[in-house]
Design a protein around this nucleic acid. Structure first.
Lengths: 235, 235
DNA sequence: TAGTGGTCTAGACCACGGT
DNA sequence: CCGTGGTCTAGACCACTAG
């Protein structure tokens, strides 16, 4: 089946945003400009833009052109309250174990496919801190799907997901989460600087992406004492 | 500003679904029938139906009419893994404190508006059990916005949200959550049948609804030992 | 006031589902 | 095969934003 016209325009604009031709706050071409440039009608142009709205890439208001927005908001992911908000101010991320190859772990909460297991496993681990206090230990595992230069270069703006989006045009398409309140064991207690047995929140996530071989398995341990985990949904 | 035509058709169809004229699995009128019935063009009919899709009321496939679906899937709420799935099998809800008026509690995690505080507060508390094991204590508070017969009648199919939807045409429009891993204190430990100090998950939620005066403040305490809390997102 | 996005009409062709 | 939903064209009027 042929790709729909609006789908093509949508993809094109999306890629330009992902690659940074349009940055957050920039204005997209107007509907009428898109009509001229691509020889389509406004209905089709609007359909493409509506798709971008639905996916959280842009926002639109009457009388003004479409504005590129920070996509995170649209993801509805759990995040540390006051983490991305207080960005820069006393917030830091420390790479504890840099990206490298490891054996696939036994239990990632979610089943790992044969195709993934057939490839090497890449792993890294980071600490998230607020005002010097460690509030999260984040571990990631995923199949080495041949991402170019992934192990050599730094993350785009320090963000793993932004790196996937900007550099590899890979987007998150789905996620499953599982939450456990549990007693901190030795290593987690040490890293989070809490007593052994203190209650911590474990979040296991499987991110499915637009790349068929790339699923990201995350395991987060959070000290929710001072900074709870939160999120918002819009229906 | 006048209500858009498609908005009106959308509301009408939505209400018919909410009121049970169309039930889960039923087929909606075709686009062409809607065009005739409401003297609109297909574009407008489609817009209304697309809105229903976006909100999770219906699903559409080429060649077939729109089908009414179970809306829960679209909500992306946290839920006990295997709770709604295993519905009926060893799953029960026990009303611990039936709906009644109480003083507004001091701290509901989210701020309560003056307009809400000016009205009486309704509260109820339930236990959720799986195979006889209590896995959640759920408390709800909300302003008495004059919901007709609310305090007199049972919940529709045992569900609070379904009662709001079917009987009062009130839908959830937004939710904010906050998660804490914490040590179970006296009463929570007793109700969840765990040792004092055992790690439990506390989830505080504010549900905003389509009724301007009705926000629902929930506080859930979960024993995640055997049944983790989980959810899924689609982007 | 000019340009923009939001809504709507009246057509058309196509791909898919069930009969 | 017919009816369905998915896509698209070529117009139109309106409400809003910004210069």
């Amino acid at each position: 089946m042929k790709e729909a016209r609006y789908r093509l325009i949508y993809r094109l604009l999306k890629e330009r945003i992902q690659q940074g031709h349009y940055r957050v706050g920039d204005l997209l071409p107007s509907e009428n400009e898109l009509c001229r440039d691509f020889t389509i009608t406004r209905t089709t142009a609007r359909r493409a833009l509506d798709e971008l709205v639905k996916e959280g890439f842009i926002e639109r208001t009457r009388g003004r052109r479409s504005v590129v927005t920070e996509r995170r908001k649209a993801l509805g992911l759990l995040s540390i309250q006051g983490f991305s908000e207080a960005a820069g101010e006393g917030v830091e991320t420390e790479m504890l174990t840099p990206p490298g190859r490891v054996e696939w772990p036994r239990d990632l909460t979610f089943p790992v496919s044969e195709a993934e297991l057939a490839r090497p496993c890449i792993h890294f681990r980071r600490l998230r801190k607020i005002k010097g206090r460690t509030v999260m230990v984040a571990s990631e595992w995923f199949a080495d799907a041949g991402l170019d230069r992934f192990l050599q270069e730094d993350f785009v703006e320090g963000s793993f997901f932004r790196t996937l989006s900007r550099r590899h045009l890979i987007e998150i398409t789905r996620s499953s989460q599982e939450l456990h309140a549990m007693a901190a064991d030795g290593e987690v207690a040490r890293l989070l600087e809490v007593a052994e047995g203190a209650p911590v929140l474990r979040i296991c996530i499987k991110f499915t992406t637009s790349h068929p071989l790339l699923n990201i398995y995350s395991r987060l341990y959070c000290n929710t004492e001072s900074y709870p985990i939160g999120n918002q949904h819009f229906y």
